[in-house]
Design a protein around this nucleic acid. Structure first.
Length: 261
DNA sequence: ATGGTAGCATCGCTA
């Protein structure tokens, strides 16, 4: 089916970021984009603005917080909001799935655990357990499947600017990384890490505070996971740090992966 | 230097 250029980007409010996002997409020409943190009601999504540059969109929004969407210029079929039927639905808008040119694509916004002793940490772990259930009931590891989004987990210490200081905090705990391992056991592969096993200091999120971006203090928590067929076909992947620069950026940079199926 | 940013919404929460 040819090359597919797929992006995941936590935009931290589509309302505040739409102009930047649309301009970036015209420049980069992705085939599929998975968005997180649209932070708007379902019907507030700027559908026509995306249509004007050639993209169909599907949005699962809930208002002030969360919200996920998929934009595609290669087809957008069989849209499912929330987890697939058979899995306990989540009370927040954190996953949407669609089929784009034969690839089953999900955009996911994994809960932020806040702290290891916070109820939201248990919510995060349970949510990731349900993501595995979702794959078991709705996807096939033998098919091209991509689950891209803000995982709020740094897979290894190579994905963290200050691993020693992060001990005891969320995003790096064994339990969270065990959940990523469970996704790998199901059949998903971190496309960036597979392609660049030795890359260090590559991050996708930097706190707005303290000048962290300019000091290189970030985490790689935005991941494009794909089944083996996708991973083996991945020709390149990159974090577009340029999109974190300039006026009113999101605190996340987009992650691009291209694969030739 | 014991703070700091950003978005949404409203007198605080979330990240």
């Amino acid at each position: 089916m040819g090359a597919m250029r797929l992006v995941t980007w936590n935009v931290n409010s589509m309302k505040a970021r739409a102009d930047r996002v649309l301009e970036w997409m015209v420049d980069i020409e992705p085939d599929v984009v998975c968005f997180q943190e649209t932070k708007m009601e379902q019907d507030a999504f700027p559908t026509m603005d995306f249509a004007a540059i050639g993209y169909e969109t599907a949005h699962f929004g809930q208002g002030r917080w969360n919200g996920v969407a998929i934009a595609s210029r290669v087809g957008l079929d069989d849209v499912v909001e929330n987890f697939a039927a058979g899995v306990e639905p989540d009370h927040e808008a954190r996953i949407i799935s669609a089929t784009c040119a034969g690839v089953r694509v999900s955009s996911v916004y994994v809960p932020n655990g806040r702290a290891l002793d916070d109820d939201h940490y248990q919510y995060k772990l349970g949510w990731l357990d349900r993501l595995v259930e979702h794959l078991e009931v709705s996807a096939s590891r033998e098919q091209p499947v991509v689950v891209a989004g803000d995982y709020n987990i740094a897979p290894t210490d190579d994905d963290v600017f200050n691993p020693a200081e992060m001990v005891g905090f969320t995003h790096v705990s064994d339990a969270e990384r065990d959940r990523l391992a469970a996704l790998e056991r199901w059949g998903l592969v971190d496309l960036f890490r597979r392609r660049y096993p030795d890359a260090a200091g590559v991050y996708s999120w930097w706190d707005y505070r303290n000048g962290d971006f300019h000091k290189g203090r970030g985490l790689r928590i935005d991941l494009v996971l794909g089944t083996e067929a996708v991973a083996a076909a991945t020709t390149w992947a990159i974090v577009d740090r340029n999109a974190r620069k300039g006026k009113q950026p999101s605190d996340h940079a987009p992650v691009i992966a291209e694969f030739e199926l």
